[in-house]
Design a binder for these strands. Sequence first.
RNA 1: GGACAUUUGGCGCAGUUGGUUAGCGCGUCGCGUUUACAUCGCGAAGGUCGGGGGUUCGAGUCCCUCAAUGUCCACCA
Length: 707
Amino acid sequence: MLDKNYDHKTVESRIYKKWEESGYFNPDNLPKRHKKPFTIIMPPPNANGHLHAGHALFVTLEDIMIRYKRMRGYKTLWVPGADHAGFETQIVYEKKLEKEGRSRFNMDRQDLYKEIYSFTLDNKKFVEEEIKILGASCDWSREKFTLEPEVVKEVQKTFKKMYDDHLVFRGKRIINWCSKHQTTLSDVETTDEEKKDAFYYIQYGPFVIGTARPETKFGDKYVVVHPKDSRYAQYKDGDTFEVEWINGKITATLIKDEAIDMDFGTGAMTITPWHDAIDFEIAEKYKLDKEQIINFRGKLLPIAGEFAGLKIAEARPKIIEKLKSKGLLVRVEENYIHNVPCCYKCKTPIEPQIMDQWFVKMKSLAESALKVVDDGKIKFIPDNYEKIFRYWMNNSIDWNISRQIVWGIPIPAKICTSCDFAFPDLKDKESQCPKCKGLLKKDTDTFDTWFSSGQWPLLSLGYSQGKDWKIFHPTDVMETGHDLIFKWVPRMIIFSLYLQKQIPFHTVYLHGLVNDAKGHKMSKSKGNVINPINIIDKYGTDALRMALIVGNSPGTDMSLSEDKIRGYKNFANKLWNIHRFINSNTEKITADLKKISSYSDKILLKELSEITKDITSDFEEYRFYLAAEKLYQYIWHRFADVIIEESKPILAGPDIKAILSRQQTLIVIFSQVITMFHPFMPFITEEIYQTLPIKDKNYLIITPRPK
RNA sequence: GGACAUUUGGCGCAGUUGGUUAGCGCGUCGCGUUUACAUCGCGAAGGUCGGGGGUUCGAGUCCCUCAAUGUCCACCA
């Protein structure tokens, strides 16, 4: 006799092991009917911590797609992975070092690398274990780590190829510099923080200029106004002035340029090309001098005179004091609210700096990606993300791919110490500059993680080392978070098109954030984090999966509450008890459609076939949230509440034929429903299916779905 | 400043191309132990679908407009 309470703990771990042993997670082991490939590349979770609710959501969604397609007879491949997550992991590790009173800045590069490597491998194990707990039916034999030697080699080859194709170049550009992390960041790695500062009006020769950053102004010797600004009509482009400035007299030159906003401040500004992107552009345009004012540690350089060596925050009030004493401070507007770009990890204000960095020329690549989307070759779910994608592709700027951190794939390049010429050197053989015969040094930078992640659909399939990519690339669905619509999705499209002239996937399914019950973002500091593994221990994977799926439409953030999860644990128990009822009423009977003779039973089957059709179309259209809810409704409120209740008098009645017909009907309906429902609650459905009286059973994971 | 979303009973959400009395879960209130399930069953209360205007025989669903909320992007020195 079965226990009247369903025990998820024993069932779930036992079943997962059986599935693994069956080998069916690997497409090569699937029965012959599985011919057409269906592939999903798992976005590799960062191997620097445990899984969170967002991971549980993506694993569930992808597993649903894979299980559905597998049961439909596809040769399904879901490639799991783990991401070394360059900058992200380095930051996690730096925090750990900080706690131990250590710092990466006084560590040997090799030692640091080794430490982070073993830290990452440890976390990778946790992550793998947790993905299994979530029920992921992915092919572990094909698991890829983003720092495997083959991956590194391929990524470096791509770099060389792009250099040869003039798509990668090294140049002095203005970049985003994080003074805390001592590295450059790409544009998508900065975030705006609202800050309240003072806004100063300062006399600059005959002009009054406005600034929130007086500490950058030491070297300013160009003042810019709009050519149509009547206030400055008496001055001509190129006029020079003697200006009494912070540390004495300088000669200033007037420039008239339309980049100026006449309505802002006084309509006149001085430029600091080394520390401002707009100023840099103006300086480039007119070939003006550029001078560094702030060093990479965020301290003032000797150009600041008496202020040299001071940090910006310390220097600012002192500089203002001096300007005041010299009578140059015109007025101060307090409470000036503006957005300041900051490091997306530590919120340190970004200090723009001019540096020699590697860049990818994005224009032609972005155009190629735009074209395949225009041609309808790649679809977005929900489709409004297509617009966001388009916007980004039309406005993409050159991509800085070098990072000054050790944790990542090394940029295989040499740089000339005398003429700065830089070029790829995959084999690390060159020692003399081909241009000036100067001494070469090895580039110590690593690639932006997205440079390698962008190639992941090919890399995870082995690319040039294996045959897999020829079978499984282009893949089918890329399922990922909507925040990666900029960071990741376009880059995968770009790289697959560039390297193989193929799209990497035909469908992009984007999920939203998993928030707490009240819709607030989960964060450790708020203490509202739902840990999926703890939840599973309490309610089971199946319950968590349902709670993550029902009512969660693509692209929108969802609220997850423990109440909701508990509700689906109850549902698991309901399923279990339906199963107990059916088992105890159908002893010594094997399912056989032909024995269903009564009219009312045939009506029930017809109803089921209509529901099946409806739910199948929901699956095909990626409406998992609807399919799951409809099945739930049918199972509980139609099958259990009505059909089973109606069956009780029939089964207890005198009509043998009617009893037999009803017994068959119950088995047929239940087994079909269980089969359809399997992608959502894989464990309990498999467990139940194994005890149903059906001939020639295999694992439910490869059982064909009803049509 | 721009873009994209969201707004449906106390809370969280469905409602797919406009079509009968707008659904679900949780919660609330009654009642209930009957061949599975009290992690349950039966029943009930509770919504003028953000405001306004329009199209239509018919609008939660389409169009216009306003508002609130959220997210992203850009940015003024």
